[in-house]
Computed example of a mutant assay.
Amino acid sequence: MKKVLITPRSYGKYNKEELIALFHKNDIEPIFNPYGRIMDEKEMIQEIKDVDGLIVGVDPVNSNVLKCAPKLKAVAKYGVGTDNIDCDYAAKNGISVTKTMNANSDAVADFTMALMLAVARRVVEIDAGCHSEDWSKKEALDIYGKKIGVLGLGAIGRGVVKRAKGFDMEVYGFDVFENVEYNKQNNIKFTDIDTIIKECDFISLHMPLVEETKYILNKNNLKNAKENLIIINTARGGLINEDDLYDMLVAKKIYGVGIDAFENEAVHDSKLLKLTNVIAGSHTAASSKGAINTMSKMATEHVIEDLLK
């Protein structure tokens, strides 16, 4: 019987029996994350050595891990970002890598807007004050009719564009590839990152983390930020230089950030967490019931299909 290691903690939360039955129907044994958290490299090496397939979240699947999995034939990403997977090594060694494309796009776009509203209107700060019997008025920023720059116009970025239009926002966009027809249809001002930083009130990140995008926002370009800029990152932590971001937040050069992805996940000592103008998430933007169901089923179907080839 083939074996599939499943690392995401939310996998099958609402449809686990259905998914296990699907595995068993195809003579496959699912093995679940024994740690109840994101695994480190050493733990991945230990757990992956005897499996044929892998369904993985953000746990490390680098070449060191893959070298220790001689039977591995299929990796199904529970999500869309594959920066934690050595796809080159996988391709060279006949290991298929699939993604659950668009399964969580709406959930992440929703959470992006929730963070944007929360930061701009100081929702967390006001709530904490009320729970401490501080009923003072706290001035905040508007969203309606403002300018937003969307960095990355894939499925999630386009979802944010659609939602931003509901707030009558003026949309600027940037991506590695320009889709002229889409931009024209949606009245997007496609431009460069420096222009977006100077012109926009909000910046929302939806890009993959690759060599070209690492620290795409940093002190050198953010020093030209428009007054009261708000940054939302529901993509990957390494897109922003967090030390630079901290300095600019403390200096009030940036109004606030909503950040659901840190460069080092499950961070314990980030300076950013000490700031009141930072609203943090635990890489949870995709964690809606609908998205979890869809990602779980899609990843399962992908890994079964590849193992049965």
Rank of each mutant, 00 (worst) to 15 (best):
A225H: 02
L222C: 07
E211F: 09
N218S: 14
K198M: 08
N220R: 14
M207A: 14
K214C: 06
M207R: 15
I231A: 03
E211L: 13
M207W: 04
L222Q: 03
E199C: 08
K226T: 07
E227A: 14
P208K: 13
T213F: 09
E211P: 06
H206M: 10
I230D: 01
I232V: 14
M207N: 11
N220M: 08
N224K: 14
K223V: 14
I216H: 01
Y215K: 15
P208T: 10
K198G: 04
I232K: 06
I216D: 00
N228H: 15
I230E: 00
S204M: 13
Y215N: 15
D201G: 01
T213D: 09
L209T: 01
N224W: 12
N220V: 07
L209N: 02
P208H: 04
N218I: 11
E199R: 13
K226M: 12
N221I: 06
R236A: 04
N233R: 08
I230R: 00
K219S: 11
R236D: 00
Y215V: 02
K223Y: 07
E227T: 13
D201E: 10
A235Y: 01
T234Y: 03
R236I: 03
K198P: 03
A235C: 12
A225N: 02
N228Y: 09
F202M: 06
S204A: 12
H206I: 07
K198L: 04
L222W: 03
K223E: 11
L205Q: 02
V210W: 10
H206A: 07
N218E: 05
D201R: 01
E211N: 15
I231D: 01
D201C: 06
I203S: 04
L205E: 02
N224R: 13
A235G: 13
I230N: 00
F202D: 02
N224C: 12
T234C: 15
N221P: 03
I216F: 07
M207P: 01
E212A: 15
T213N: 13
N221H: 08
T213E: 10
L229P: 00
N233W: 05
E199P: 03
I231L: 10
K223W: 09
N228C: 10
S204W: 03
P208V: 09
S204L: 08
A235K: 02
I231H: 02
E211Y: 12
T234D: 10
E212C: 05
I232N: 05
F202C: 02
